[in-house]
Design a protein around this nucleic acid. Sequence first.
DNA 1: CAGCGGCGTTAGTGGTCGTTAACCTGAAGG
DNA 2: CCTTCAGGTTAACGACCACTAACGCCGCTG
Lengths: 212, 212
Amino acid sequence: MNDAPTRTPAQAAPTRREQILSEAARLFAERGFHGVGVDEIGAAVGISGPGLYRHFAGKDAMLAELLVGISERLFAGGRRRVIEATSAGGGPAAVLGSLIDGHIDFALDDRALITLHDRELGQLRDSDRKQVRSLQRQYVELWVDVVRRLHPDPYEAEVRAAVHAVFGLLNSTPHLGRPGALPGREATAALLRRLAHGAFAALSDGGPRPEA
Amino acid sequence: MNDAPTRTPAQAAPTRREQILSEAARLFAERGFHGVGVDEIGAAVGISGPGLYRHFAGKDAMLAELLVGISERLFAGGRRRVIEATSAGGGPAAVLGSLIDGHIDFALDDRALITLHDRELGQLRDSDRKQVRSLQRQYVELWVDVVRRLHPDPYEAEVRAAVHAVFGLLNSTPHLGRPGALPGREATAALLRRLAHGAFAALSDGGPRPEA
DNA sequence: CAGCGGCGTTAGTGGTCGTTAACCTGAAGG
DNA sequence: CCTTCAGGTTAACGACCACTAACGCCGCTG
């Protein structure tokens, strides 16, 4: 049951807070925010129930920190990739490729967070929810900008919808059998990469007619 | 607040049960199964709280009927389309196109159910969950079979993952701004259709290398 | 060694929520 | 007109649950 943390010697032991956040994320993703009790979260890290309140103001605060954290990391990572790929002389295609790769890494490494990200937004306090939404919007904007440079023809609304749709595609990893069922992590990543590029490619050309 | 039911004269008035299911689906999708109280569901149909128990054995029963119903309709509709498109002399491409069109119709017309479908599976009683999963599996199988005829090269596991990914793409409609933000329903459908076909097209060819 | 602060513990409390009980009403039917 | 029954009502109960209170242990640090 207790699979070893498998930590590379370089990185420090996770703090209690981090343990709690990690287990809470897993449990929330499995059974929903309201479906998990504080006693369960405590038990998952070896302490019991109210001991959590030494580290967090409440259950809501855990969820808030998780969702704000995801959104920040997604946006920051995306912005970094745009800057790096651009300053490396890459065109829009290279930038988009880097965004896709980054999102795939995230989707494969943090499945639980991906699940929470759009499942439990409604449970946040207004201020937190606004912050998360703002970060999400900025992240989407990164994508929309680069996709529009690559495919200038479609309306912006179409591009925005396409970006959301590709997010849905990439975020489908939690629905693939537990270990992935695919040969390995890299195979899954490669497949998702191809599918995402294929979807965006269909933005410019008329797209195959269904009765082809 | 009370937008008229807008019923075409042909179809009969919805029964109380159907009203309840419809409102429950909307509320569950908005705030999660555990986030909605029976009193709210009752209020949404103009009766109050425990009056629901004249129509359903409990809150769980409503969710179960919703999820089983969706799964059945999805699978039945998919099977019908496969049969019809096949007997009309269509090749795998036409059959896949019909499956995609059907799924898009569903995703656009029943957003709330799409949301519930993979969000609240865990809240079901074991027997119900097994039934839903079985129907889902059969539905996926319809897609895998036809996609494999169209793209014989990839491993079956890859095809299965691709199908799940395209589901994620098509089911992204709930994340597009409330009214759709797109020009209209048909425009959204056309866009999703193109993206889905584009993704599947990338299954066979090597797919664009990221550093293209 | 005093004491103090970080980190747990267990017991209790208030509130919410699903569900049941008991009762009411109005329309259909003999 | 009396009965029946579908479909409501309000009141109450019991379980659960997030959170607080009160207390204990231990490793610092001066």
